[in-house]
C-alpha cells in the first residue's frame, strides 16, 4: 500500500466514512464528522500507524493534510 493510500485508509477508518478523499489542501475541519474527539483519535492512530511521535505543539498546528504529510515525511522519513 502506498503511503497516500495508508493515510486515506486511516482517515476513512477513524471517521467511519468510506468515501473520504484527501487532498493536500483538505482542512481537517472540512472532513465529515470531524470534531475534537476525531482529532485525538486520528493523531494517535497516525502515531501508531507511522511510528512517529507528535509534539504538543504539532497537535495544535497540523490542521491540513498537506501540513500533516510534510510532518510525517520529515518524522518517519517517508517518500
Amino acid at each position: 500500500m502506498t503511503y497516500d493510500t495508508r493515510l486515506t485508509e486511516l482517515f476513512r477508518q477513524i471517521l467511519d466514512e468510506p468515501t473520504i478523499e484527501l487532498r493536500d489542501d483538505t482542512h481537517f475541519t472540512d472532513l465529515p464528522g470531524w470534531d475534537s474527539l476525531a482529532h485525538v483519535n486520528t493523531m494517535f492512530s497516525l502515531e501508531e500507524e507511522f511510528g512517529v511521535t507528535f509534539t504538543g505543539d504539532e497537535f495544535g498546528r497540523l490542521h491540513t493534510v498537506g501540513l500533516l504529510k510534510e510532518t510525517l515525511q520529515r518524522k518517519a522519513a517517508l517518500p
Binding site: L10, Q13, D16, N41, E48
Partner: peptide, 11 residues
C-alpha cells in the same frame, strides 16, 4: 491490540 483497529471495530 491496535488502537486504530479497535476504533474501527467498535464502529
Amino acid at each position: 491490540p491496535s488502537f486504530r483497529t479497535w476504533q474501527a471495530a467498535v464502529k
